[in-house]
């Protein structure tokens, strides 16, 4: 059947991902080791914030990945809706929990950073608030995808929600910034300095790259395990049908 040719891709995906995975895993480990060493040991402490500034090397890349994952969730969803490719569905579904984890890490490290800086765990800072709303968007997506008995229905509904959410993210961001300037005009809330010294920028970028590779590694592993799960289902089905 001609229309089935597109389902042949998962086989190619399996081969390809098996070849790529060791490299991305090794790259993640290496970059993270170097980035953490440079960030935690080599780079200088901030003259205002002291040693606490080092949380930045985890917080900022996590926040970037939180946004980046949502964009890739939306892209995979668009691909799933347009080309109806099952791999795109899987990619979207498996991106969401990873993105939600990055978002949670960004929020947790933001709170940890805020404690010494502001003397309180949580400040309704524009950036943190937007990230919090983003976490709710991720949770809504995950809840919706899992709320159907027919997995295909869940995948389709989730894909539409991801696109709707993606269109809304800039609007939410804008409105939260607007709200923030109304309520706390002083800009005490800058988490990252505008002009950053190279000794801090290098580890930050290394960590960002490490997080990106970590995302790719986790995503490939999750998709592979989903495909293997399906394979088991088929084998069990065969057993039942003799």
């Amino acid at each position: 059947m001609s229309s089935l040719h597109r389902f042949a891709n998962p086989a190619r995906f399996s081969r390809l991902s098996r070849a790529v995975l060791p490299w991305t895993a090794a790259g993640t480990t290496l970059l993270m080791a170097v980035g953490l060493y440079l960030g935690l040991v080599v780079s200088p402490a901030d003259y205002q914030q002291g040693e606490t500034v080092r949380i930045m090397y985890v917080h900022v890349p996590a926040a970037w990945m939180a946004m980046g994952c949502y964009t890739s969730l939306a892209l995979a969803s668009a691909a799933a809706l347009i080309w109806k490719h099952p791999l795109a569905d899987l990619a979207a579904q498996e991106t969401a929990p990873i993105g939600a984890c990055f978002t949670a890490i960004a929020l947790a490290t933001g709170a940890l950073w805020g404690q010494p800086m502001w003397g309180t765990w949580w400040v309704w800072d524009a950036r943190l608030t937007s990230v919090l709303v983003l976490l709710f968007l991720y949770l809504g997506y995950i809840a919706l995808v899992n709320a159907f008995d027919d997995p295909q229905r869940g995948a389709r509904a989730g894909a539409i929600l991801a696109l709707v959410g993606w269109v809304n993210v800039p609007i939410i961001k804008f409105s939260v910034d607007w709200w923030n300037t109304l309520h706390q005009p002083a800009s005490i809330s800058r988490l990252d300095a505008p002009a950053i010294h190279p000794s801090m920028l290098t580890p930050l970028l290394l960590m960002a790259l490490a997080f990106l590779l970590l995302f790719i590694t986790l995503l490939l592993m999750r998709i592979r395990s989903r495909l293997i799960d399906r394979r088991i289902q088929v084998m069990q089905q065969r057993e039942i049908e003799g």
Partner: peptide, 19 residues
């Protein structure tokens, strides 16, 4: 057609109504 659709709707829509 989802399970517990009533609660789910709020979870999906409320974050979008922040603006």
């Amino acid at each position: 057609g989802a399970r517990r659709a009533g609660v789910l709707v709020s979870l999906l829509v409320l974050p979008l109504t922040v603006p």
